[in-house]
Computed example of a mutant assay.
Amino acid sequence: MLYTQDLEELIFHRHQLHETDELIVLSGYLGPRPVARLEELPFNSTVIYGMYGSEGIKPSLHSSLLNIQGEVDNLNIFYSNLPVHSKCYVWRRRGDIIHALIGSANFSVNGLTTPFREVLAETTFDTFRPLNDYISHILNNSISCLEVGMERVIEETEQTDNCLMTLLGRNGEVQNAAGLNWGQNPNNHTTPNDAYIPIRTSHIRDFPNLFPPKQLNPLEIDGRGRMQRHNDSIEIIWDDGLTMEGLLEGSQPVEGVIYPKQISSFPIKAELGEYIRNRIGVPLGQPVRKHHLERYGRTDIEVSLIGEGVYKFDFSV
Rank of each mutant, 00 (worst) to 15 (best):
M1D: 08
L7E: 04
L7Y: 03
H15Q: 02
L17V: 00
E19A: 01
T20N: 02
E22I: 00
L23D: 02
L26P: 04
S27F: 03
Y29F: 12
G31L: 07
R33Q: 14
P34E: 04
A36E: 10
R37V: 01
L38I: 02
E39K: 14
L41F: 05
L41S: 02
L41I: 01
P42F: 04
P42Y: 06
Y49T: 05
Y52Q: 10
S54C: 11
K58L: 12
P59K: 15
S60R: 15
L61R: 08
N67P: 05
N76F: 06
I77E: 02
F78A: 02
S80M: 06
S86V: 01
R92W: 01
R94V: 00
S108C: 10
V109T: 14
N110Q: 14
F116Y: 15
R117I: 07
L120A: 08
E122G: 07
F125E: 14
D126R: 13
D126H: 15
R129T: 11
Y134T: 06
S136H: 09
I138R: 06
L139P: 02
N140W: 07
N140R: 11
N141H: 15
S142Y: 09
C145R: 09
L146G: 03
L146A: 13
G149I: 14
R152A: 14
R152V: 00
E155T: 06
E156A: 10
E158K: 11
D161I: 04
M165W: 08
L167K: 05
L168W: 11
N171M: 10
N171G: 02
E173P: 00
P186Y: 01
H189G: 05
T190M: 02
T190E: 04
P192C: 02
N193T: 04
Y196Q: 05
I197K: 01
R200T: 10
H203Y: 06
F207K: 03
P208D: 10
N209E: 12
N209P: 00
L210W: 09
F211R: 08
K214D: 00
Q215C: 06
L219Q: 14
D222Q: 11
R224V: 15
H230D: 12
I234T: 11
I234N: 08
E235G: 14
I237N: 09
D239G: 15
T243R: 15
T243L: 05
E245W: 04
G246Y: 12
Q252D: 10
Q252V: 10
V257C: 11
I258G: 03
Y259M: 08
P260A: 06
K269T: 10
E271H: 07
E271N: 08
I276D: 05
I276E: 03
R277H: 08
R277Y: 05
N278T: 03
I280Y: 04
G285K: 01
R289M: 05
K290C: 01
H292I: 01
L293Y: 00
R295P: 00
Y296V: 08
R298E: 06
I306G: 09
V310G: 11
K312N: 12
D314G: 13
F315P: 09
V317W: 09
